[in-house]
Simulated assay, not measured.
Amino acid sequence: MWHDNDFTRRLGLRYPIVQGPFGGGLSSIDLMVAVSEAGGLGSFGAHHLAPEKLGDLTRQIRARTQRPFALNLWVSNQDPGGDRLSADQFAAAIERFRPYYDALGMTPPPMPERYGQRFEDQVQAMLDAAPPVMSFVFGIPSPAILSECRSRGIATMGTITTIDEAIAMDQAGVDVIVATGFEAGGHRVSFLRSAEESLTGTLALIPQVADRVSRPVIAAGGIADGRGVAAALTLGAQGVQIGTAFLACEESGTNELHRRMLFTDDAKYTALTRAFSGRLARGIRNRFVEEWEGVAPLPYPIQNWFTGTFKATAAAQGRGDMISLWAGQGAPLLKHRHAQELFDALVAETAALLR
């Protein structure tokens, strides 16, 4: 049976379908609970949350589902120079973004105390919260952290973009390896080489990784319907991680403008850009992406902080040209607007193809 394998048995799932974790507030408890209750693995991108919020988040989730779920962190959440700006540098950065504040009728923000969270603080809070699964991107946690996860009964799931990263993840003893092709929406989570040097497609990546590692492989990138699930399983994956299709559902944490854009012809045209966060990510091409082409962004998370100061206002004003519209190359395949409908379709289509 296609949904009974090492991966589903290890995590206690009915179906090998993982909802991709969305960072920056795009995740929601409603969505992850819907997926987990349907028999898959719901996920919540928590890298933007302060450590003290992680325990509360875990308790809220457990109050709504007893099924397995995953919380996701970024192992590397700061690029060189991304921890601070001098007063002069901050003033110069404000001037770079002033046209966007002016267009939205906003007053530029004051300098913050910090631009993002520290993984070292977050991961200790994560260990204390002890979710069923800790997933992570942009690197591999230390052996001590992985050992602590095992001792607390926390399954680990790490994401890779290349064969070398997969081998490193396997040797580290991570329980499940998510192999993501460049078709995927959102951030390219490479960690051994630059993201631009790690752009392997899902079709080529999955069988090569499956041939070289001993852990279950989960395929991600460009999968939006049962055909993609069946193809990934045929290529050697034991499950799939689906992002854009779940992001488009009403239960996700994104805004209505973003969801609506995922069902338009604009979704056919995605771009890999560092414009919004300072790290390479795939989203629908728009004015902001085009205006930053050839322009060096500030390092992550500083660039991300600045764009985050106006994205909510831009969305509220219907300015799709000024917000990050994360989307994978499979977006034109989207049909469903509710998580249960999408999940049921994935199961039925996959079963029919693999029967």
Rank of each mutant, 00 (worst) to 15 (best):
I140F: 04
E256A: 15
T309L: 04
D79W: 13
P21R: 00
R67P: 13
P297C: 08
E165W: 00
F97N: 01
S43V: 14
E349I: 15
A92H: 03
A92P: 02
Q122R: 06
P21L: 03
A144V: 13
A352M: 09
A92R: 01
Y100Q: 04
K268S: 11
G294D: 04
T180M: 12
P21A: 14
P108C: 05
M1S: 15
D88C: 02
A224E: 06
Y15C: 10
G201R: 06
I167P: 04
T264S: 13
F90C: 03
V178C: 11
V295M: 11
L192H: 10
E165S: 04
A267V: 09
S36Q: 07
L280G: 09
M322L: 15
K311R: 15
Q208K: 06
A348M: 07
D175S: 07
E52F: 15
A92F: 01
R282I: 13
P332S: 11
L262M: 06
P108L: 00
R64P: 09
I223S: 01
L104T: 05
V75R: 01
R62W: 09
R282Y: 12
E290N: 14
A92W: 00
P80C: 08
P16V: 04
A204G: 13
L127Y: 04
H258N: 05
G222E: 01
T162G: 09
I302S: 06
P99N: 06
D225C: 07
F22R: 10
Q117P: 08
F306W: 01
G173F: 00
D344K: 13
P110W: 02
A220C: 13
E165F: 03
T107R: 08
E120F: 11
Y115N: 07
A331Q: 04
T307W: 02
S190G: 12
M126W: 00
M157I: 12
A248H: 03
E256G: 10
S194Y: 05
M126R: 07
S151Q: 14
H336A: 06
S190C: 12
G40I: 00
A91Q: 08
M32R: 00
A232G: 05
A314C: 06
G23E: 00
D56E: 13
F22V: 14
V347S: 05
V189G: 08
T58I: 07
E251G: 06
S194H: 10
R212A: 14
I167F: 04
A220M: 04
M32S: 10
R279D: 08
V174P: 03
A34P: 01
G226S: 08
G82F: 07
G185W: 00
G81Y: 10
L280N: 02
R64L: 11
P131C: 02
